[in-house]
């Protein structure tokens, strides 16, 4: 059915402060068949920019679940600005799906009109901050609503990068009114790779701006000669250290929508639901602790 001729079976549903899972193609049918008890679902925006079967699945799933759109291709940090055609495609999908949240990354992927298929690190400079703020503001104006910006994992730092990432991200939120998608696994990965304090990162984020948390697994890659680097491959369960960091994040920010991401070596749906249940228990524990404090 075309979007223009189809009466909507839903209104924009806010994303609840519960655990959700990242929905990938292989889980479309299981979700429709099993209707699992999960608070919400998040999909990669780019996977639904065409028509046909993927979009039909998303329409069907959206009738029963709040959905968040999480993009990877807009290149918010590009000096040449975000891809206008890509932004228009996002807008069409937003109008059709009416997602509870729309998010992208604190990174860049376009240069010289060429798309590089990864989330590349920004130098944390005043110039990059101005570019990022200009691009986020442009996207928000075009979509007519605020977006969330996520901190990516990184494997390198620039010699000239004087602003700490946590200050940079907070400044983007302050200047543009966007929210922060705090990826706790990414903070852990980058903190290990670059030797900064993950706890300090969390404490520096403005709690009122954090509207979503991401959790995922990562791997420790051996580069030889005793050198190791953590790679954010979204291919395993959330590790214990990241769960502990998550507990700290929830204590700082309060219960916020929390997503389990898994993108490589995808397991059965039940494994994702199990991870989501773990996040839910921790959210509930934080709620209980908050209530006890209030008394």
């Amino acid at each position: 059915m075309s979007s223009s001729s189809t009466p909507k079976a839903w209104a924009t549903a806010p994303i609840p402060a519960t655990a959700g899972i990242g929905l990938r193609f292989c889980h479309h049918q299981p979700v429709l068949d099993e209707r699992p008890s999960v608070g919400w679902l998040e999909v990669h925006t780019e996977n639904y920019m065409g028509g046909g079967r993927p979009l039909a699945y998303l329409d069907a799933i959206r009738r029963d679940y709040p959905v968040s759109l999480h993009g990877v291709g807009l290149s918010l940090g590009s000096a040449e600005g975000p891809d206008r055609v890509h932004l228009e495609r996002i807008k069409r999908l937003v109008e059709r799906i009416e997602p509870g949240l729309i998010s992208e990354h604190l990174s860049w992927s376009m240069t010289g009109g060429v798309y590089v298929a990864d989330l590349l690190p920004l130098p944390m400079t005043e110039e990059a901050l101005a570019v990022m703020c200009r691009n986020v503001a442009h996207v928000q104006e075009h979509l007519g609503r605020p977006i969330l910006v996520e901190n990516p994992s990184s494997y390198l730092r620039y010699r000239h990068s004087p602003i700490p990432e946590w200050e940079f991200l907070a400044a983007v939120a302050r200047h543009t009114g966007c929210s922060i998608l705090c990826d706790v696994n990414n903070i852990f990965v980058s903190a290990c790779n670059h030797g900064f304090d993950a706890h300090r990162y969390l404490r520096a984020l403005p709690p009122e701006s954090v509207s979503e948390i991401h959790l995922a697994g990562h791997t420790l890659k051996d580069l030889g000669d005793g050198r190791k680097i953590r790679i954010d491959d979204h291919g395993a369960r959330v590790c214990r250290d990241v769960w502990h960091l998550y507990d700290e994040a929830v204590a700082l920010f309060g219960p916020v929508p929390t997503l389990i991401e898994w993108d490589t070596d995808l397991p059965p749906l039940a494994v994702l639901l199990d991870e989501a249940a773990m996040a839910e228990r921790r959210l509930n524990a934080a709620r209980g602790a908050g209530n006890a404090d209030a008394r």
Partner: peptide, 30 residues
């Protein structure tokens, strides 16, 4: 500039021309 850095990064990933961008990156054991 940001544009120069991103173009150099792009050339590195696409053509393996690491020289310019490598100078802007901290090694630190890797």
């Amino acid at each position: 500039t940001l544009d120069e850095l991103q173009r150099a990064f792009g050339a590195s990933l696409r053509f393996g021309e690491d020289g310019t961008i490598a100078e802007a990156i901290i090694g630190g054991g890797i």
